[in-house]
Simulated scan of single mutants.
Amino acid sequence: MNRIVHGDNLEVLQSIASESIQLIYVDPPFNTGKRQSRPQMKTIRDDAGDRTGFGGRRYRTEILKQQPGGQGYTDTFDDFLGFLRPRLLEAHRILTPTGSLFFHIDYREVHYCKILLDVIFTRPCFQNEIIWAYDYGARSTKRWPAKHDNILWYTKQPDLFTFNLTATDRIPYMAPGLVGAKKAARGKTPTDVWWHTIVSPTGKEKTGYATQKPLGILERIVRVHSNPGDTVLDFFAGSGTTAEAAAKHNRSFIMVDQNPDAIAVMQKRLAAYTKPRPSQRKSPPKLKKSVKKSTPRKARLSSKK
């Protein structure tokens, strides 16, 4: 069931069977009015270099030559909501009765997007606004630096959805001395504010694709809001972080993107999860074919902390 699709995401969404996808995460362009790209660099051992590495060794940074346009995309829309609306209507149609949509955006557009989603999903199906907070990058001297993104969580139904809080990772208490040694060692479940660093520019997780999101954020969403065997969809797939999170936790994935750079990054990153096994069909099934539905169950609205 694992698929990477290069094409117009609206056409792909229209080909997917109704009520066949258990979890959708999308990180659409943020309509920043800029070109989103990230230069490719390499470091060379040089005692007169511009950076210090392990053991105090010095290295020189060189920017690699890129093809025109580079690895990125133009993030400008004349009618951003008009672009999103038909895609979100299709997302609502293909979600299972217990399914969830996670819509990742920033402070510039979140209030407009929430109104649009309230109309499509209805306001009772809005469950949370999650704040992903990080502390990296330049500091403005003219206003408070923007160091967070907004993730809106909507469900197909207002009170019947998948929410496996016991499957989440746990985080440290900010004041461990107030809760005792046992609780402090176990940690606590996250709230609607998720402190998580960005993808390290020099770390192994980095693919080089602009706007790549951390695997830890997507793993939390996948573990809590889907079940093993479910299908996870991302139709602004970018570097494929959603797919890796899904595959690591025994979920199937469908990744869609129109950018050939994104497709190339995903094919390399997800090769281990997309190669056919001997017992599998050589040709993947068409998208119109329904995927397996999960058994509806009542959401657990509270859990032991």
Rank of each mutant, 00 (worst) to 15 (best):
L23G: 01
P296N: 07
N9V: 11
E109C: 13
T61M: 11
R35S: 04
P68V: 04
K288D: 08
E109Y: 08
H225S: 05
E11R: 15
R60G: 01
G69L: 12
H111N: 14
E129F: 10
A246P: 05
G137H: 14
G55R: 15
I94L: 04
Y173C: 03
I254N: 03
D159G: 09
R277E: 13
G70R: 14
K304W: 06
P276V: 12
D234N: 10
K183Y: 13
I94Q: 04
G238T: 06
F103P: 02
R300D: 15
D79P: 00
D50R: 07
Q258S: 08
V5C: 13
G240H: 05
T43Q: 11
P201E: 12
P278H: 14
G70D: 09
R85A: 12
W144S: 05
A175H: 11
R57K: 12
L215D: 03
A264E: 09
N259H: 14
K34S: 10
R58H: 14
L178I: 13
M1T: 12
G177S: 07
F253Y: 11
K305Y: 11
N9S: 05
K42H: 09
L301R: 06
Q157S: 09
R139Y: 15
K34F: 11
G240K: 06
R251L: 00
R223D: 01
N31W: 04
M1A: 11
F253S: 01
D50S: 13
A91H: 05
T274W: 06
R108V: 06
R297N: 09
A264K: 13
V5P: 00
F77Y: 11
A91T: 09
Q14H: 08
L101I: 03
T166V: 02
N31C: 05
T207K: 10
A91P: 10
V291H: 07
E244D: 06
F77G: 05
G56I: 12
A133W: 15
P145M: 09
K292Q: 04
C113V: 08
P172D: 07
R60E: 07
E62N: 13
S294M: 06
E11A: 15
Q66I: 14
R60P: 01
I44V: 11
K204Q: 15
I221Q: 05
K275I: 13
H6E: 14
Q212H: 04
I171Y: 02
I254Y: 08
V26I: 10
L160F: 12
L23E: 03
Q36W: 15
T61E: 13
G180V: 12
K156V: 04
T197M: 05
V265W: 07
F161W: 00
A167I: 01
E129M: 04
W194P: 00
K286E: 10
R300M: 10
S294V: 06
P145G: 11
